[in-house]
Simulated assay, not measured.
Amino acid sequence: MTDTAIELRSVSRRFGSGDNAVTALDEVSLAFPKGTFTAVMGPSGSGKSTLLQCAAGLDRPTSGSVAMGGTEMTRLSETQLTLLRRERIGFVFQAFNLLPSLTAEQNVALPLRLAGRRPSKARVREVLGQVGLGNRARHRPSEMSGGQQQRVALARALITRPEVLFGDEPTGALDSRTGRQVLALLRGMADREGQTIIMVTHDPVAASSADRVVFLFDGRVNGELIGAGADDIAARLTKLEAVPC
């Protein structure tokens, strides 16, 4: 057994070849302990989204390895990877990606239906209740605010009880008040449910909700802050953005 949810070992990801090759990740080694909330930050082009995609099994590294618990993800076939993501990983993105013709409860149940499993109405209502939308089960996305839609997306990610929840700018399209509500939900999932949260963000206020902030620069890890406030995170990010390329 391991206390690490996701571990990257010497992960590199290159795109293209020859003179046109671009190195998005360069020998990155990182461990994400179970039950923790980690924010990943860095200037534009630093490799944040590529890191998330490789860690979540959405993209394969050019070299190095990614492990989820005791499972070496880089050795899995595409079919095995798809099953692992479906059963053990949740995703929340800046775009809510809800189907407009479906109600909140139908959107939440969708991952189970796609997996060929019959969703329990009680479980669907439970996760909607977790995100404060127990009374919105029969509403369609057009009848909800942006924050409510993002919370439906969060409930959809939770329906399979994922071991790790990945967020790619999950509060990027929300106003500050609604963003704080979503971050409080993520914080609570780590604290009360023991879930592992890995979130890419550009927002120091959002990052301050995390236990740890990992900084990337030019595809490499450039230090981290533990339990830092928004001002310290912003100052560190500003220094990175000021570094000449």
Rank of each mutant, 00 (worst) to 15 (best):
T38N: 03
T74M: 04
D59G: 04
R113N: 00
G188V: 10
G18E: 03
T201D: 12
R14V: 15
G16P: 07
D191Q: 14
V213F: 09
C245F: 09
S176Q: 15
L114I: 09
A39S: 15
M68F: 07
A184P: 12
E193R: 14
R14I: 13
T201R: 12
A155T: 00
V205L: 13
S49F: 07
R118H: 05
F215A: 03
A56L: 02
L8I: 07
T178Y: 07
V243W: 00
I233D: 12
A228D: 01
K48N: 00
G47N: 05
I197G: 08
V200D: 03
F32Y: 14
R236P: 10
K48T: 01
A207V: 04
V92D: 02
F91M: 02
F32Q: 09
P204C: 01
Q130P: 01
S29I: 07
A234D: 08
D203V: 05
R192I: 11
A153C: 14
F91Y: 06
R161G: 03
A235L: 12
S46E: 08
H139A: 06
R236N: 14
S176T: 15
E7C: 11
D59P: 03
P119S: 05
C54K: 00
V11D: 10
V124H: 12
A67D: 13
A184N: 13
E241W: 05
K121A: 08
V66P: 04
R85E: 05
G35M: 05
V131C: 13
G223N: 12
I159D: 00
R156Q: 04
H202S: 07
L114H: 07
R192M: 08
L225C: 05
R220A: 15
M73H: 10
L30F: 05
T36A: 07
V40D: 01
M1L: 06
F15N: 02
F166D: 00
I226D: 08
A24C: 10
L185K: 06
F15K: 07
A206R: 02
G223H: 11
L51Y: 03
V11N: 10
T74G: 02
A31S: 15
Q130L: 13
L52P: 02
T171Q: 02
L25Y: 02
T103R: 15
S176D: 13
D168P: 03
L174V: 08
V164W: 06
E169L: 08
